[in-house]
Design a protein around this nucleic acid. Sequence first.
DNA 1: CGAACCTTTGAAGTGACTCAATGCGTGTGG
DNA 2: CCACACGCATTGAGTCACTTCAAAGGTTCG
Lengths: 243, 243
Amino acid sequence: MKNLLAKYGQLTELSVDEQEIFTGLAATKREYESGSILSVDELDGPDQLYVVEEGRLFASNDLPGGERAITRLYFSGDIVGTANIPFEKATQTITVNSPAVLYVFPRRNLVEAFASMPRVAAIFYTFAAMENAILNDRLVSIGRTRGISRLASLILEITARRNLIRQSPEYEFTLGLTQAQIGDAIGLTEVQVNRLLRTLREDGIIERDGSRIKIADQARLEEIGLFKDRYADLDLDWFTDEL
Amino acid sequence: MKNLLAKYGQLTELSVDEQEIFTGLAATKREYESGSILSVDELDGPDQLYVVEEGRLFASNDLPGGERAITRLYFSGDIVGTANIPFEKATQTITVNSPAVLYVFPRRNLVEAFASMPRVAAIFYTFAAMENAILNDRLVSIGRTRGISRLASLILEITARRNLIRQSPEYEFTLGLTQAQIGDAIGLTEVQVNRLLRTLREDGIIERDGSRIKIADQARLEEIGLFKDRYADLDLDWFTDEL
DNA sequence: CGAACCTTTGAAGTGACTCAATGCGTGTGG
DNA sequence: CCACACGCATTGAGTCACTTCAAAGGTTCG
């Protein structure tokens, strides 16, 4: 629970009671192999929530034609499975995409947490609202911009999320997704992703060595990508005075 | 507050106390002209929430190039502005798209509601999670399907949402959006929207008379659109036993 | 060292865009 | 009550971003 607490603690002072609530939510800690599927009825049922301690995951949906869409990426400290909470059946598939350590708890545990600490409810609600804003941004990106902008936006999202938990930002790193997965995340084919990565490289905006990339021209990447870092803009003051 | 209570009351029994909380949240009731803009700092500030009693609204984002993306449509009973809650500045523009009656309240009022009634917190959290799922669906539709599917999906979404509050479903109605707005909602140009509407008509799937449309072949429309009615699938039982 | 998976590149096809013009309906001011 | 303006819908022609199909080159790992 270290990373969850670190993330929330950065944003709002957590009392000892609240820390206990958060820690108490998720008693079970589990390790997962890369490639595991969560949130499919066979395994845990759709009523489970996960907190990412370590590793990378993504949420996706499969289409009848065999295509796949990735709707959300998860990093350390994220709460996974929000969109499944109010439904009988899972609305999305959660894939573990690197060796991962997760805290698992049933959504039912939230009930007690909300009842005993309204501030915890406000925190969860706030994060759901922020996820909303992030999904909005993605929708704008995919619906109304060219492939090159979507790719730039995704690269910026991944670096921003990496640096959120990390103490010192790394300027060279791997995206953690195959080109086909990148395509699923931004609504392009793997072929086109490959070509666009090449143009970013040829234009001197990124450097690449195998799966590792380095941002060579952050300013230009941001200009192309229009990415907004919602985590950086978060403002939890609206409830901190009274709760 | 009639429509909000009706919507929630359909899903979960509301106690008198809870009904009072909901009603007490939003003291102010206002009328808006079609075309009004909410949630821009000039007007109400981004810290306002709205409950739609009557009318149609949508949330949109403008891009530097002048394009616009519509990310969410709002109908009677909806809570508007969730994605703006955790931020200083509004993350989206809310446009009133028909004469409307709204209840207005500052997000701060949620704090008291959460504190006095954890069940209300659970309800708000649940609806935020459902919005999440709907945005996911939209993302899948826009990122990974052809224009014709996106259009079908939007038509189905609008009819589903209309019929949710309405006692008797109408089979002939207006979408309430111009073709340019439809384009902004599904990531196409107005030209393409027009052509796709034509092909739907020529294929006998819908009938059109000016802005009014009628679904002639619901089954085929659903087959094309892949729309999932998340409202119909909602399950609030996860917290009702204990709260 | 071979299989599986991922990346890269080419060539041809197409869904959707851009540009542009015309038609239509409604409201408003003269 | 007409004329004009304005917003919206419709249609055509040409172009382009991205897809599809196909094949070859790399990497990783048992």
